[in-house]
Amino acid sequence: MNELREKAKELLLNNTVKLIIGYANGNGHNRTYPFIARNAADANRLVFNEYCVNNLAVYLTRKEFKGKGIIGIVAKGCDVKAIIQLIQENQINKDEVYIIGMNCNGAVNQLDNSFEKTTLAQKCINCTVRTPALYHALIGTTKDIEEPADTLGEKIKEVEKLNADSRWDFWEAQFEKCIKCYACRQVCPLCYCEQCIVDKTVPRWIESSAHTRGNFSWNIIRAFHLSGRCIGCGECERVCPMDIPLSMLNRKMSIIAKKEFDYSAGVSLDSPTLVGTYNMKDRQDFIK
């Protein structure tokens, strides 16, 4: 923790960065929240621990921060994947972000939005980036952690085993709950569109009403727009007030991207994006 604060202070004092997006302790609660450090005193409030679940990369594309000088960001390996994806999609300039990479030993599962049970978060199971792939400064050490079984993969397989009608019923029951609060979209580092398709009114492609039909198109199209882009930070599922298993959609799309195109999001800074390119050998057995 001290190492992080010292580094932050140094960066702020010698004007390497304009501000640092990091975590601070929630007021007495057993949780942390995003915090913007602008001076040395602020830097002393920065923390990093297993309660730092948020993916702070979401702030990098916000107009309050983007293009306003070099931004420092405290980032776990998974957050760095989002940053890499943003650089790959030309959303942020590589030279305008200073990554304070954190060696990460897993974040806790934020059950019921409080940390009553401190199990490892789903996204941390089988994590390959506990040391970030890209950083300007690296802080902390990794240690061996006990990983529970990957239940998400199992859940997806269970749904895949159902017939089409039952798959529909499963998802219909999930989407019916949606209240269109757009927490999934707002918290997603890759949902940076200035105007989201669901907010477009002329023509209105996706109904903004929170009835099952409008919810169905919204959730499907969001999953599609994130396919090959979602880096699997699981923030959308964490924040969903209605507990819709959004990771089951996003992970499924990642699995398809891997299987069909051997492509993973958030890995390469300069290769073309998944749907931004093509290959003459792409599968077409489903096309008559």
Binding site: A164, R167, F170, K252, F286
Partner: peptide, 21 residues
């Protein structure tokens, strides 16, 4: 060619939510 790539992803997604081939 771009469309083909997109529809590989989309048809798999639709199949997953219950709209099959």
């Amino acid at each position: 060619l771009h469309a083909r790539r997109r529809f590989i992803l989309f048809s798999e997604l639709m199949n997953y939510v219950g709209i099959d081939s």
